[in-house]
């Protein structure tokens, strides 16, 4: 059984693209459409890594990230890759909370994403 990736993304098209990206890999994909749903899924699937969009309905990605990192349980240690079409410059403050945070600007290639995930899970 492979490791679980929680993908938090509001667009169905993007989720479809992620499915294709991870097709043929060992990873289990869990979809969440906003931050609120992501918290529920977090407890259900206990992911090894989270891929997080910023612009989300209800609880946006940056809020979710800050909340996650402030938690005192094991969830706060889960590595996060932020994947957004926003420039990483606007969110450099998130890097201060977690220096290991990876910021991927959309569009990115399949290779790039898989490489980042591997690096995090090593």
């Amino acid at each position: 059984m492979g490791k679980t990736i929680l993908i938090v993304e509001d667009e169905k098209d993007m989720h479809d693209l992620y499915s294709d990206i991870f097709e043929g890999t060992d990873y289990n994909i869990v979809r969440a459409y906003d931050g609120d749903e992501a918290f529920e899924k977090l407890q259900e699937c206990k992911p090894s890594i989270i891929i997080l969009d910023i612009i989300l309905d209800l609880v946006p990605g940056d809020t979710f990230f800050m909340y996650l990192k402030s938690m005192s349980n094991e969830y706060s240690g889960i590595p996060v890759i932020i994947a957004s079409s926003l420039s990483s410059h606007s969110y450099r403050n998130l890097k201060e909370i977690d220096p290991h945070l990876v910021f991927l600007e959309k569009p990115f290639t399949r290779e790039r994403l898989l490489k980042e995930i591997e690096a995090k899970l090593m």
Binding site: M14, D20, S85, K106, P107
Partner: peptide, 24 residues
């Protein structure tokens, strides 16, 4: 500006990624 550029960039990113995966 952030949101508009995001909203304009997102479909472009989706198109680009879809095309890349399709090409693969």
């Amino acid at each position: 500006i952030r949101d508009v550029s995001h909203e304009l960039k997102t479909p472009v990113a989706h198109i680009e990624m879809a095309m890349a995966l399709w090409a693969e």
